[in-house]
């Protein structure tokens, strides 16, 4: 794009519209969105795949199942027949979408179907937790930066505490509570196996990461002429925040969204990897990696496939994040474009 385009546009379009137009023209955003669209599409068609293509229930253990490959009947979980006959190995990838495309896991379940279902959980948790995090960060950042004084001091210390708090302790303890008795806060009851736990934990972990820069921006904005002027006219705080502050911090918030969603997904998988996230028999990419670790030496694909899905999704989100950032602030654009 040339300078001429954008300088002309300034007179007729708002900055938001320009950004949107920049974004639409960006190759990276097109690539990233098509990858994300593909992943979301296949993940949310998981039940269709399991039911109509693989004809399997990926949550039902089938330890004694058999399948026929090239007319030959084979056990899905094959006991070793060589040497001392130790160990049982699940069937490997058949590369046949109809049955066990990526092989079976330790319970004789279809890994491909579980991978798709797992994608659904990971995407759902990652996105919800990411948005929750952004929302809470906005709230904290704006209040701290706008009110200043003791409110800011208290909230800043709160952020310090969250930042330095051992997330895994919180996760482990909460998951024990949840798993064993369920958690009741007021009228909300969170039962075992609910996604609320990972969403809640991941949602608060990254608050300081986002809230601190927002607070700093709001603090700076608070000193600007147009905000002072608005305060001087006696406008309500909420009006000032909504009319003057929020639009000015929106660009950086928008940049944060893909990054935080990607971070949330990575954290979800890490928590599940430490077996404190999504609970069995439900699947997420992290839990499948965790289960796959037990098969790393015999069926590495079970652990590697969900890892690759995470990398692909996170990379697409980050790529999109880059495109959004550059669209809003073209200074950092790659010079090649």
């Amino acid at each position: 794009m040339s300078l001429k385009d954008s300088s002309e546009a300034v007179f007729s379009e708002s900055p938001g519209k320009i950004a949107l137009r920049n974004l639409r023209k960006d190759k990276r955003s097109i690539i990233a969105l098509s990858i994300l669209g593909f992943i979301v599409g296949i993940s949310f068609s998981a039940p269709l795949y399991a039911h109509f293509v693989a004809h399997t229930n990926p949550f039902q253990s089938t330890l004694d199942a058999t399948i026929s490959i090239h007319g030959e009947q084979k056990a899905v979980l094959e006991p070793s027949t060589t040497g001392l006959g130790l160990g049982v190995t699940p069937i490997g990838p058949t590369w046949n979408l109809g049955k066990y495309f990526l092989g079976a896991d330790g319970q004789g379940r279809d890994v491909m179907a579980r991978l798709l279902y797992g994608g659904r959980s990971t995407l759902l948790i990652g996105t919800t937790a990411g948005l929750l995090c952004i929302f809470l960060s906005l709230l904290i950042g704006i209040i701290a930066g706008y009110r200043r004084g003791w409110v800011d001091a208290v909230l800043s210390r709160l952020l310090d505490i969250i930042w330095a708090f051992p997330v895994y302790l919180l996760a482990i303890s909460l998951s024990v509570v949840l798993l064993t008795s369920g958690l009741t806060i007021g009228f909300i009851h969170v039962g075992p196996g609910s996604f609320a736990l990972p969403i809640f934990i991941i949602g608060i972990v990254y608050i300081p990461y986002v809230a601190r820069p927002i607070r700093a921006q709001v603090l700076a904005l608070r000193e600007r002429e147009f905000v002072r002027a608005a305060v001087g006219t006696g406008a309500k705080s909420s009006t000032i925040i909504l009319r003057e502050i929020l639009p000015n911090i929106m660009p950086s918030v928008l940049v944060f969204i893909p990054i935080i969603v990607s971070l949330s997904m990575l954290t979800e998988s890490a928590l599940s990897f430490l077996s404190i996230g999504v609970q069995p028999p439900a699947a997420s990419w992290g839990t499948i990696i965790n289960e796959g670790l037990g098969l790393l030496y015999t069926r590495p694909i079970v652990g590697i496939a969900p890892g690759l899905m995470i990398v692909l999704t996170a990379a697409a989100l980050n790529l999109y994040g880059d495109a959004v950032r550059d669209a809003l602030d073209p200074k950092t654009r790659a010079r090649g474009d």
Binding site: S80, T82, G83, L84, G85, L86, G87, V88, T89, G106, G294, L295, L296, Y297, T298, R299
Partner: peptide, 19 residues
């Protein structure tokens, strides 16, 4: 022994296994 190593030690290292 982790289950994914059983077959390996049962074949390659059978003489070192005692059940």
């Amino acid at each position: 022994i982790p289950s994914d190593r059983l077959n390996e030690i049962g074949t390659k290292y059978a003489a070192q296994v005692h059940v």
